[in-house]
C-alpha cells in the first residue's frame, strides 16, 4: 500500500491541494486525458477498451481537514481556525506541520493549573494557538504567514490490515480511483479528483463540466464500531467491507441504484455493508443536484476517528470500495442499468 501511504502523507488542506494534485496527475497521465478546472479539480477522461453507452463520473476528493493561520501575536504565537470540521476534542496537544516544514504544537494550559471546571471542558477553538517555538512576531512571520495552512503531523502506520493516518478521508478514495484508472477498464469514464469537499464545494463545478448520466462517489465515512457504543449507533464496521449509503444528511440516494450496489456486491463477491445510521454528507450532495440532475451512489470506507490525526481504516475495505466502485462504474457505462 505504498501509494496509499504516499497519498496520505501529502499535505492537502481544502484549497491547498497542489501536492496531491501533482502526485495524482503523475500517476494517471499515461492512462487518461487530464485537465484541471478553474478551481483546481482534476477531470480525467479515462480511455477504456470500449466506448461508454452512458457517461459515468467517479469522484474522490483530494482535500483534507486542517488549520489556517488567522493572526500572529506579538509573542510569536499563531491563532488559527479549522478548515473543515475538526472537534476541539481532537486538537489539544497535537503536533501540526506547515507545507514548508515548519512544525508547531497546539498548546494547552498544563493540567496542574486547570480549575476543576476547566478539567473536563474543552476550550473553544479561539482560545487555542499554535506554538512554533518563535519568541516574537518577527521570528514567527519569517516562517509562517497569515493564510498558511497546517495539517496534523502524525505518521502513516500500517498495523496488520489496519492503517492509521491523518488523511484517510479521502485519500482512500483517491487511491481507489487512481487504481481503477490504471486497471485497464472495460469502458470509458470520467474520473474527478475534487477540491474543497471539506468546506462543502460538492464537486459542483467539475460535475457541471463533465455533465454525466451517473456518478459514483468514493469516500470514507464515520465508523463508530467502538466499545461503549450501542449497535444501532455504530454506523458501520471497520473490516466488514465497503459501506453503501441509502441516505446521509446531504443526499437521499436513488433506491434502484442502491439496490443495484448490493446486488452487484453479491454477484462479484465483494464485501459490502449498509451504512446503518443517517449522518454526515459528501460530494454526492452537490453532484446529484448539478445540471439537470445526476443519479449518484456513494461507497465509503468505514473510518474510525475521522477528522483527527489518527483516522483508522482497513485495507481490505479500501480495496472493497475500489472493487465495488469499478464494478458499478462499468455497469453504468455499459448501459445495462436503466
Amino acid at each position: 500500500m505504498e501509494q496509499l501511504k504516499a497519498l496520505c502523507e501529502l499535505h492537502g488542506v481544502s484549497g491547498r491541494e497542489e501536492a496531491v494534485r501533482s502526485y495524482i496527475i503523475e500517476k494517471i497521465k499515461d492512462k487518461a486525458e487530464v485537465k484541471v478546472d478553474a478551481l483546481g479539480s482534476i477531470i480525467a477522461k479515462v480511455k477504456g477498451k470500449k466506448r461508454a453507452v452512458k457517461k459515468v463520473m467517479a469522484d474522490a476528493h483530494m482535500d483534507e481537514v486542517g488549520f489556517i493561520v488567522t493572526y500572529i501575536t506579538s509573542g510569536g504565537m499563531l491563532k488559527f481556525t479549522a478548515v473543515g470540521s475538526i472537534s476541539e476534542s481532537v486538537m489539544l496537544a497535537r503536533r501540526v506541520v506547515f507545507s514548508n516544514g515548519t512544525v508547531g504544537v497546539i498548546s494547552t494550559k498544563p493540567v496542574h493549573m486547570l480549575s476543576a471546571d476547566e478539567k473536563s471542558k474543552f476550550p473553544e477553538e479561539e482560545a487555542l494557538y499554535i506554538d512554533i517555538g518563535a519568541k516574537s512576531f518577527e521570528e514567527a512571520s519569517a516562517k509562517v504567514g497569515l493564510g498558511d495552512c497546517a495539517v496534523f503531523d502524525e505518521p502513516y502506520e500500517q498495523l496488520g490490515d489496519l492503517v492509521i493516518s491523518k488523511a484517510l478521508d479521502d485519500r482512500v478514495g483517491c487511491w481507489g480511483l487512481v487504481d481503477i484508472i490504471n486497471s485497464d477498464p472495460e469502458y470509458d469514464f470520467y474520473a474527478v479528483f475534487s477540491v474543497m469537499e471539506e468546506i462543502g464545494h460538492g464537486a459542483r463545478t467539475a460535475t457541471f463540466a463533465v455533465d454525466p448520466d451517473y456518478a459514483v462517489v468514493l469516500e470514507s465515512t464515520t465508523a463508530a464500531d467502538i466499545a461503549g457504543v450501542p449497535d444501532d449507533k455504530k454506523v458501520c464496521y471497520v473490516g466488514k467491507g465497503a459501506a453503501a449509503l441509502f441516505m446521509d444528511r446531504g443526499t437521499l440516494y436513488n433506491k434502484d441504484l442502491f439496490d443495484k450496489v448490493l446486488e452487484t456486491a453479491k454477484e462479484k463477491n465483494i464485501p459490502c455493508q449498509v451504512k446503518s445510521y443517517v449522518s454526515g454528507g459528501n460530494n454526492a450532495a452537490g453532484i446529484h443536484q448539478t445540471g439537470d440532475g445526476v443519479k449518484t451512489i456513494t461507497l465509503s470506507v468505514p473510518c474510525r476517528y475521522i477528522h483527527s490525526a489518527s483516522c483508522v481504516a482497513s485495507v481490505s475495505d479500501v480495496k472493497a470500495v475500489r472493487d465495488l466502485a469499478k464494478a458499478m462504474i462499468m455497469k453504468m457505462a455499459s448501459g445495462e442499468i436503466e
Binding site: 476534542s89 489539544l92 496537544a93 494547552t108 486547570l114 473536563s120 476550550p123 492509521i164 483527527s308 489518527s310
Partner: peptide
C-alpha cells in the same frame, strides 16, 4: 501521573 483528559481523544 497527572494527565489532561481533554487531549486524549484520537491520541496515539
Amino acid at each position: 501521573g497527572g494527565i489532561d483528559r481533554r487531549m486524549l481523544a484520537a491520541m496515539r
